[in-house]
């Protein structure tokens, strides 16, 4: 394995400071501040259109935020301003890797190839921009072997080993979700951003997802930032929850605190029903 997992548990990994994103007249995120610790699971929840995916896009360089800053406290490279980086730098240098709400695999490539592509930077470096690779030099062969071992490790962990040589696009939805997570893990992220990983999963699959998330954060000390609608996942695994509504942060805290927060209940159930519930 190339990079040993850096243990950043307990430290603040990501520091979002008064982030605002506007599209024309629409404010998708309004003055959002949030700290994401390493080695823990932080969830972002909120109704549809609350700005969750936009938040991810701002973190990972796909959108340039209108104002505000996103700092990644990288144990090696120090604080990095993610909002100023091109998207590929965010993954390569800052170690923030994301998945997508509508799964984005390389559909005609096999599952294994998907995981090898994720290790492109390390492999490309080892192949000395293809020269060492073309002539089959030992250094490149080693790197390739290491990449295969890492891919195999995650394939095993995510129960994908048997389908490693199948085209990724032909597999079932739940499997594709797992492949996307495995692929992201092959980049050796410090912070893994998962955009609705439980969407479209059946109850058994989503229970397995719970275990996987806990395993990744407890055993591999990955910081995880999770966007999710499935409360069975969110409430069981999250260490910390942040609730967005119309781009504003309306609550933050542990699962218990969030479950009892009147603002959250209002946002989810609407004003009237929340009042009725309070009255009852």
């Amino acid at each position: 394995m190339s990079a040993p997992t850096m243990n950043t548990a307990g430290q603040t990994l990501l520091e979002v400071d008064s982030l605002t994103m506007r599209f024309g007249g629409l404010t998708a995120i309004n003055n959002l501040s949030l700290n994401v610790p390493g080695g823990k699971i932080t969830s972002i929840i909120g109704p549809n259109g609350a700005g969750k995916t936009t938040f991810f896009n701002c973190l990972t360089g796909f959108y340039k935020p209108t104002t505000g800053s996103v700092r990644m406290h990288h144990p090696e490279h120090g604080p990095l301003a993610l909002e100023q980086m091109p998207s590929y730098h965010v993954a390569r240098k800052a170690g923030v890797v994301r998945t997508f709400q509508n799964i984005r695999l390389f559909p005609n490539m096999t599952v294994l190839e998907n995981l090898i592509v994720a290790q492109h930077n390390a492999l490309q470096h080892a192949s000395r921009f293809s020269l060492a690779g073309l002539f089959g030099r030992a250094g490149y062969k080693q790197a390739r072997e290491a990449a295969l071992t890492k891919a195999e490790m995650w394939l095993t962990r995510l129960k994908l080993l048997d389908i490693a040589d199948l085209a990724a696009g032909n597999l079932s939805y739940g499997t594709q979700r797992r492949i996307e997570i495995a692929r992201a893990l092959c980049v050796d992220p410090l912070l893994l951003c998962l955009d609705e990983p439980a969407a479209g999963l059946n109850p058994r699959e989503s229970a397995e997802l719970n275990e996987l998330l806990l395993y990744l954060s407890r055993e591999h000390h990955k910081g995880i930032l999770l966007i999710e609608h499935d409360m069975n996942v969110v409430m069981r695994v999250s260490d910390h929850i942040c609730v967005l509504n119309f781009g504003n942060k309306i609550a933050e805290g542990t699962p218990e605190q969030i479950q009892n927060d009147p603002n959250v209940i209002k946002a989810y159930l609407g004003e009237d029903e929340a009042d009725e519930k309070e009255a009852a």
């Binding site: 796909f62 091109p86 994301r98 997508f100 984005r104 592509v117 492109h120 980049v187």
Partner: peptide, 17 residues
């Protein structure tokens, strides 16, 4: 392999660094 990956999905490639 990267050429083919870019052909398949550029956005995913960027997200993988």
């Amino acid at each position: 392999i990267a050429w083919e990956a870019v052909r398949e999905d550029e956005v995913a490639c960027k997200a993988l660094g």
